[in-house]
Design a protein around this nucleic acid. Structure first.
Lengths: 156, 156
DNA sequence: GTATATGCAAAGAATTTGCACTATG
DNA sequence: CATAGTGCAAATTCTTTGCATATAC
């Protein structure tokens, strides 16, 4: 388990990313979060440690990490972009009540890359939506994670 | 095959939706489009028939249709919302070159709803990204469908 | 006729860009 | 030191809201 700053430094330098203080903190925060945070949530958490951290830096860092393969953007939450720090292929579960995104590793025969009906498959995405186990047992107590979603978008 | 306006009227009234001229046109346009259009594309196509059609109406109509189960919003294209007029479960393929979304009906054992590891599954989504057959054979000639994507979002 | 739908203009929110300042190696 | 990163503020784009007019039954 990677825990101290030096380890994050190595992860970054190994991918030819200049290991700044912000990047190490962002990487650490991403890796320790199992809920696949939004940019806003990530920023809210990080400003407690780095009060001057800007959203600009966060966005550019996440884009950089995505290009370097350190994180994968998730298109599940209709309202905001989310990020996945894991590299092994897996499915996701989006709880429409508490807003968390959980990992689901289940076997999927379609998870192979290659060519299907003439189309070259580069990425495979699978996700589910519904109510997570916690929300099923405690219907209203877990509605917190929803930040302040004012919109009621087309995407239910 | 449903082709004339009266048929669309029936589809709408059957779902207790007031069949206005705009709604019938939007429904028809959606159903005849296999590329799962964005709001912008839909609007661009429809204003040729209904010059006064506003994006506001388009958004509210799509939200209404989604609530009534006539269309399903797609979260595949990172830049814009897309819509699927089909109701049978199927996977999608997003071509990162021409931007089209194609249907892929392939068997998937995970497409069942129900309860998985304590979570209640309400929706199942599966999609692929890559280069479609057309773009593979004609690398640059099909790049049209991309409207004017100026952003280069985090989501590759 | 009355309730609902439409459309314009303006607001809201997430994300991107320009540029001066700062930290890294 | 020189290059590359950071952060503030302003700009962009998609989407939603408020309200007056128009349409469906």
């Amino acid at each position: 388990m990677v825990t101290d700053k030096n380890e994050w430094r190595q992860v970054l330098t190994a991918r030819a990313i200049k290991p700044t203080y912000q990047r190490m903190a962002i990487l650490e925060s991403l890796s320790s979060d199992a809920g696949h945070p939004t940019v806003r949530a990530l920023h809210a958490r990080l400003v407690r440690t780095i009060p001057t951290l800007s959203k600009t830096t966060l966005y550019s860092t996440l884009e950089l990490f995505a290009r370097k393969g350190l994180v994968a953007p998730l298109l599940i939450d209709p309202a905001e972009a989310r990020f996945d720090g894991i590299l092994t292929p897996h499915h996701h579960f989006f709880c429409t009540s508490c807003g968390r995104i959980l990992d689901l590793s289940l076997s999927c025969p379609n998870s192979r890359r290659g060519v299907v009906r003439g189309h070259r498959i580069d990425e495979v995405h699978g996700y589910f939506k519904g109510l997570c186990a916690d929300c099923l047992s405690a219907p209203s107590s877990r509605t917190r994670h929803h930040p302040h979603k004012k919109r009621s978008p087309i995407h239910a």
